[in-house]
């Protein structure tokens, strides 16, 4: 829910949601606790739609930024190629990514936007303070391309595992 103000409606009334089970929600938060004080990262697989990205699987990825893992993440393209192939074989698409912000709010940074290129995908960020996961927010990358891309606050809808 972004900054907690509920600002998920933009000027044209568009509304975006990422839906994931409580199991998946816990899994990506726990990943951030395990890698603390380094950033964790991973890929969200599921079904994409304009308003709703539904997550069906959470795949952990390695952070290649061992030079600066406390404040940077990067997923090796080779690993992404493999994850995308496995997703395709299971009938799923890449619908988003997640990473953690150790001892920093769950808000996107200038670096996050500059290095985000997957339009329509959800970028989930969990703040991890002193090793404990706090807020988990999601931002949808919108726009036609590099020139007009922006992050839009996205509702994180956690559904019970049994219902998913």
């Amino acid at each position: 829910m972004g900054d907690g103000q509920g600002a998920i409606w933009d000027a044209d009334g568009a509304f975006v949601v990422i839906e994931l089970s409580s199991v998946h929600h816990s899994a990506l938060r726990q990943h951030g606790e395990e890698t603390y004080p380094h950033e964790c990262c991973g890929v969200l697989l599921g079904h994409a739609a304009e308003a709703l990205n539904r997550v069906e699987a959470v795949v952990r990825a390695g952070n290649t930024r061992t030079d600066s893992a406390h404040n940077r993440y990067n997923i090796a393209p080779q690993e992404l190629v493999r994850i995308q192939r496995e997703a395709r074989e299971s009938g799923l698409d890449i619908v988003g990514f997640y990473h953690s912000h150790p001892d920093h709010p769950a808000q996107w940074s200038v670096t996050d936007l500059a290095e985000a290129h997957w339009m329509g995908c959800s970028y989930v960020i969990t703040s991890v303070e002193r090793g404990v996961a706090q807020q988990t927010n999601s931002f949808r990358l919108t726009g036609e391309g590099e020139d007009d891309k922006k992050f839009k606050d996205e509702e994180v809808r956690v559904v019970s595992a049994a219902a998913s």
């Binding site: 404040n71 993440y73 992404l80 940074s109 997957w118």
Partner: peptide, 19 residues
């Protein structure tokens, strides 16, 4: 075709290094 996935939080460095 696979666009890159990267990012990170701002640097807290007071030396003005952008994050």
């Amino acid at each position: 075709i696979i666009p890159s996935i990267a990012g990170g939080r701002p640097s807290i460095s007071p030396r003005g290094k952008r994050g």
